[in-house]
Each structure stands twice: as C-alpha cells, then as structure tokens.
Design a protein around this nucleic acid. Structure first.
Lengths: 196, 196
DNA sequence: ACTTGTTACTAACAATTGTTAGCATATTTT
DNA sequence: AAAATATGCTAACAATTGTTAGTAACAAGT
C-alpha cells in the first residue's frame, strides 16, 4: 500500500497511536480490529507490528498519557497559593479544555480502561484512585476553611469528573455552543454548587 | 448442565437478560461471549437460543428498558404543577435512585449503546436526544421564570445526566456513604448550582 | 556502490466468535 | 397415557480475530 507519511515532528508510531485513539473511541477497543486500524493508517495489518508491540500496547499508551497529564497538573496545583475553591476551579478548567483538546484520548482512557491487562490495569486504577483522593483533599480543606459548603468530598469529586466527561455529548452534538462558553457554563454551575 | 431455575415471577428469558446485563457491565458487550454468559446461567451456549434471538437482542432489551423508564418519568413530570426547579430536582432524584437500583442495566445502556444495530441504534439515539431536549425545556422555562440562573440549558442537562452516571465509581468504591446521603449530596450540589 | 537498518508485503497460524442443525430429554397439556 | 411443547445437549460451521515468519523493497550512512 505504500509507507506511512511522516512529518518531522510526528513519528510513524505516533501517527498509529493517534489513529488508534480515534478508532477506539468510535468503535470501542474490543470492536476495533487491527486490520481496520491498518486500513486507516494506509498499510497492511502486519506492518503495524514494526512500530508497536501489540494491540494492548496502544491502549496502555493512550491511557497513561492521559493519566500522567492529570497527575502533573494536580501536583502543580497543590503547591500553589490559592484558595481551595480557586484550586478546584483551575483543575476543572484544565479538565474541560483537556477534554475539548485531547478528546479521543481522554474518551478512550475513560471508557476503555477495562480492557487493559495486568499489571497496567491495577496500575491505572490505583493512579485514578489516588488522583481522586488528592482532589477530595483539596475540597475537604476548603470545607474546613469554610470556603466550601459541608458536603461529602468524594461525591463532589465524582460529580465534577463525570460532568466533564459529559462533554462527549457536546462534542457529538451539532448545535454546539463554543468551547469557551461551555467552559464558563460548567464552571458557573459546578463551582457555585460547591460554594458556601 | 441442567435446566435454568425459575421462580414464578421471573422467566428463564428474564434471568438470562439480567445475567447478561451484569456480564456486559463487567466485560463490555463485545468482550462478553455467549459461552461465558451460558456458563453463568448454568447452561450450554446453544441453549440460550431457545430463549433469545441473538446476542444483540439482549442489548436491545437492556437499552430500551432503561430508555422507556426515563420517558415515562419525564412525561409524568411535565404534567405536574411544580416549579421548574422542583421538577428538575424530582428528575434528578429519579435518576439517582434509578442508577442505584438498576445499576447494571443503566450502566450498560449508557456505555454500550454503540453496539446496537440499526434500526435500534438510530432509534435509541433519537429517543435520548428527545429526552435531553425535554429536560432542557424545563430548564429554559425556569430561566424565563427567573427560578434558574441564566445558563446554557443543554450544558446543564449534560452536567446533570453525566454527574449521575458517575455513581458508577461510587458503586465500585468500598468506603461508600449510603445511598440516601449520596442522593442528598448530589442534589445539594447540582440544584444549588442552578439556582439563581 | 555497498552495507545496514527500517518498513512494508504475503501467507499462514491457532484461537475465539456467534449461530445453526439435529437430536434427546424433560415438562405440560390433552 | 399420549401428544405437544419447551428446553437442553453435542457437534459443527464460517467468519473474524491478533499475531508471527519469511521475504522483498526502500532509505540512510559509509
């Protein structure tokens, strides 16, 4: 079929990963076949294996890319001198813009992590749990300092994160408001829902 | 292996559907095999076909069961004499308790509808779009009557519905608060996020 | 020009998939 | 007790799956 086109910044491997993310998003990991991915990339299925170890490696990369981005951001936020509510707002905005920008990856990481194999599965789950705990800690801190109303922090985290993942249906819809507006609306509803 | 045990209220068919919902939730529709389902039911794979047409029928039933429950509720709410905010709160509570009670079904319907086949796929999508529109209409009405702050209604709907689907991770977690508490926390955050 | 590593192809594999046909055994109805 | 229906089993099917082996063409470095 010919070889995969690369520009200088993106390796063949990275092209495959990107197209895989899109395909996995559309069909689901299990329903997406390597032959289909190969077709999209413009190559025979076997050729993919010159660039990646196997199908599951693709999912690993996608999921941990996303997880690592989040971990980096929460670490940054924790060190900042901001009120708890400001921290939550910053994180929320990060999630929203991240969802709009890296939609395919985030979507796949959110919905298809089940199909990771050990030890990656256990690993990612632990990372996600830890992540949610760190957000909950910020909220609990805000409650103690009376910036945030007295609620169950982990419930608040759950609402926040899943509300953001709802951007999926915004992404699909035709009559879209623009990304910035979406962000302001979400922040308005969620942040004022927490405020005392 | 022996025949499927039934009590008087639940047919063999219904047992299969229930177990299918649980299996689809755990593995995902595509990754779940009929042989595995048969194992769980306690029967050979071929025997399932005495009760159901095929694998996809199982998914159809699960998805439309859930959708129909929602449609019935929104119709009921629309006729009631309540403020918009009260209507939204009622709907929210219905979704929360529904998620806690029919967890497997709702989860599968939310995450696995992609694997429906036409015409069921188009059908369910249309139904879901219509459902969201009817909720948005209630919110817009509330905005006009100045009970609800001026926000994009479809964004609010999206937040609500996806926040509820976050109960999934509550379901998985060990250190759970109880269902009633969860409900009050969610309502508190989301309803006050809408209030003017 | 020659060598070396990269990338692609064809062909094939073993495993798993959903599903059907044909037949046996229960259970219910007559 | 006989007939009819419901439910189960074994065996097999065609299709699809991820992946590997072996080999040819290409690109880059010398």
């Amino acid at each position: 079929m010919g070889r995969i086109k690369t520009n200088d910044t993106t390796s063949r491997r990275e092209i495959i990963i990107q197209k895989a993310a899109t395909l996995f998003k559309e069909k689901g990991f299990k329903a997406a076949s390597m032959r289909e991915l190969a077709d999209i990339v413009g190559v025979e299925a076997a050729s993919l294996y010159n660039h990646i170890k196997n199908k599951n490696e693709l999912l690993n990369i996608i999921c941990f890319d996303v997880a690592n981005r989040y971990m980096q951001m929460i670490a940054e936020i924790e060190t900042e001198k901001k009120s708890s509510l400001e921290k939550i707002e910053k994180l929320l905005r990060f999630h929203i813009t991240g969802m709009v920008k890296h939609f395919d990856e985030v979507y796949v990481s959110d919905r298809e992590w089940k199909h990771l194999e050990e030890p990656y599965l256990a690993n990612l789950q632990a990372q996600r749990r830890a992540y949610r705990k760190r957000i909950a800690a910020i909220i609990d801190d805000g409650i103690k300092k009376k910036e945030i109303k007295k609620i169950d922090a982990s419930t608040a985290v759950l609402i926040m994160l899943h509300a953001v993942s709802g951007i999926e249906s915004w992404h699909r819809s035709k009559a879209k408001i623009n990304g910035k507006e979406l962000e302001e609306n979400m922040v308005s509803i969620l942040v004022s829902g927490l405020k005392k």
